[in-house]
Design a protein around this nucleic acid. Structure first.
Lengths: 349, 349
DNA sequence: TTGAAAGCGCTACCAG
DNA sequence: CTGGTAGCGCTTTCAA
């Protein structure tokens, strides 16, 4: 006598969610093709160490196609003990054009090296908590932008099998490779330039949009630092990215007694520059203006906008760093400064 | 007599890669805490169906902390049979500001609903091949921008357990929910506006940057279509995003005999507008200019740039659509047109 | 309150 | 050339 387990619906069939056809597995393919699961695996992975007759191969492929079989990445990863996923947490703010391009290039370069780059939607948690969430995915490498990770987080990732951790931020983190990229340099460059041009009462725009302090705070701090000890003042200028806010700021400009402004980036600078001119101020005579990022559009406005040009690391170079690090995880962490900053003096300062 | 397997290095120890300390598993935690793996699982997942004594809980947590234990997502997914990952293939081009913001909002909304959004770096393959690669990850939902998937691809994903497939493109795909979003509408809007303003010989900028044809081709086609049968001509104007290219185009402008131009988007439009004016042409008298995307910067240029405003679906609304679809996979696919297009007439046309 | 064990889907070893 | 099978790390019944 044999017994068979039968699934008993615990609700009337009419209210049950329609039984989703179960996802086909390699066992289903094997059954349909009349071979073993091992053979299926050999055929579908073109395992060269093993010879499978052509008719068998055809039967297996045919069965897989018929069932719409797709292998299960999690199972494969579990079995293999490693994957080729490179994890990149997404920024907590919408990406700007420079960063978008950088990520795109990096992704292209990595896929040419046969890695898969995955941008992981940060779930709001931070610090070691975030590092743990990333570690759960067992990526082969992690590329962390900003200051979202510390030595403890790096250790967590490495203990979980990450063969390379690379940070993209202002300072190297113990145990991780670093692409040095300090937003404060941008503020230093801008403030230094304005000071060199003879300006002494310098405003620094700070976007009011939430999350932007990630970039604006170091840029402001850099400006402050560059002028420390010099006979100059730095005034923080909160500004929302709207025409109205810019006009309002321009309207009370004369009362501020400033002779120069660093506009956070080219977009805010262009916005403010236009508002200042509309308010009757002369640029650069009454007020010098400088932006950052060297957007093409900044060159179109008149007067042409001075700016701080930022060179992000090339996706290719970073990809090759990651690849080397993965291949040789024992190597000492490298610090690179492919990021660089250069003042471009045009007409607005 | 018992035998024990011993791992024999096949190279001299000095040239061996340093044996990476194996990643701790829940079994290691159990061993260290002196309990079973089941207990570890109960404690770390706060399983409420089971009471574990407080001292035991502490011992387990302490052991986990000491080892730096992080659970293995692949194993958990495999066991659970499902995950809460929402897959979003990355665009084949760097994202623009509108799209970046949209993705950011969507991600935030999804994580509030307790899903994890993952942007998956497309490996260059396309069509059903790409769909299969996505299906390997067994995402609970897939959000596909553009025209990167057909009915066959949707079927593959659903057979692999995806409970919702949503496309973000010009037309609904069999079996998938759709957020209708046709770039051709932008071209239609722009061309219609220019024609209504009395222009008849209309140029359409087509960016030369690789990959942009994804967006520029439908915009051009939409413009052509809007003017079909009207007494108007459409001229394709290839343009690279550099000042030199814009100046070169402006230099031969009079020879082209055009009285209006749709600049692909605001950035190209601003670039070209400036070059045309520098070449001595009057805007809008000699040539009307219109862009698209309604960037704030377009309002700063003089004359103020006319534009086609594009409203992307809100991240929140899309997130709720995805969530509903996941909860009720049997529901008929919905088509929404939260995307909309409106001509904003300013001074340049 | 805790432990033993099955099994998710896959690949790689070894035997036939 | 092909099949049987162990085991990757985890959760979850069932039994003690």
């Amino acid at each position: 006598m044999r017994y068979v387990m039968v699934q008993i619906p615990n609700k009337p069939a009419s209210t049950m969610p329609p039984a989703p056809r179960p996802v086909p597995t390699s066992a289903d393919v094997a059954r349909l093709a009349g071979v073993s699961r091992a053979t299926v695996s050999y055929v579908l992975n073109n395992t060269s160490a093993v010879r499978i007759s052509e008719p068998t191969r055809r039967r297996v492929r045919e069965a897989a196609r018929e069932l719409g079989y797709v292998p299960h990445a999690a199972a494969r990863t579990l079995r293999a003990g490693h994957s080729r996923m490179v994890l990149m947490p997404t920024l907590p703010v919408p990406a700007g054009p420079l960063y978008s391009r950088f990520v795109h290039d990096f992704q292209g370069a990595m896929s040419r090296l046969d890695y898969t780059v995955v941008q992981y939607g940060a779930s709001g948690v931070g610090g070691d908590e975030a590092a743990r969430a990333w570690a759960e995915l067992r990526p082969v490498a992690v590329l962390v932008p900003g200051t979202g990770i510390g030595p403890e987080g790096v250790a967590i990732l490495k203990r979980s099998g990450a063969r390379a951790v690379v940070t993209l931020g202002p300072e190297a983190v113990e145990g991780a490779h670093a692409m040095l990229l300090d937003q404060a340099d941008v503020g230093r460059g801008a403030a230094g330039h304005l000071h060199a041009r003879g300006r002494r009462r310098i405003g620094v725009v700070v976007p009011e949009e939430p999350g932007m302090e990630l970039f604006s705070a170091p840029r402001l701090a850099g400006a402050r630092e560059a002028l420390r000890g010099a006979d100059a003042t730095v005034t923080e200028l909160p500004l929302a990215y709207t025409e109205e806010a810019a006009d309002a700021l321009a309207a009370r400009w004369r009362g501020l007694g400033l002779d120069a402004v660093f506009g956070y980036n080219d977009e805010y600078a262009m916005l403010l520059l236009r508002a200042l001119r509309d308010a009757g101020l002369r640029v650069p005579e009454d007020v010098a203006v400088i932006g950052a990022d060297d957007l093409l559009l900044g060159r179109l406005l008149r007067p042409r906008l001075s700016t701080v040009r930022i060179t992000l690391p090339l996706g290719r170079e970073l990809a090759s760093l990651v690849d080397r690090a993965v291949r040789n995880p024992a190597a000492a962490p490298e610090s690179h400064a492919l990021f660089s900053v250069a003042v471009v003096h045009r007409d607005s300062s």
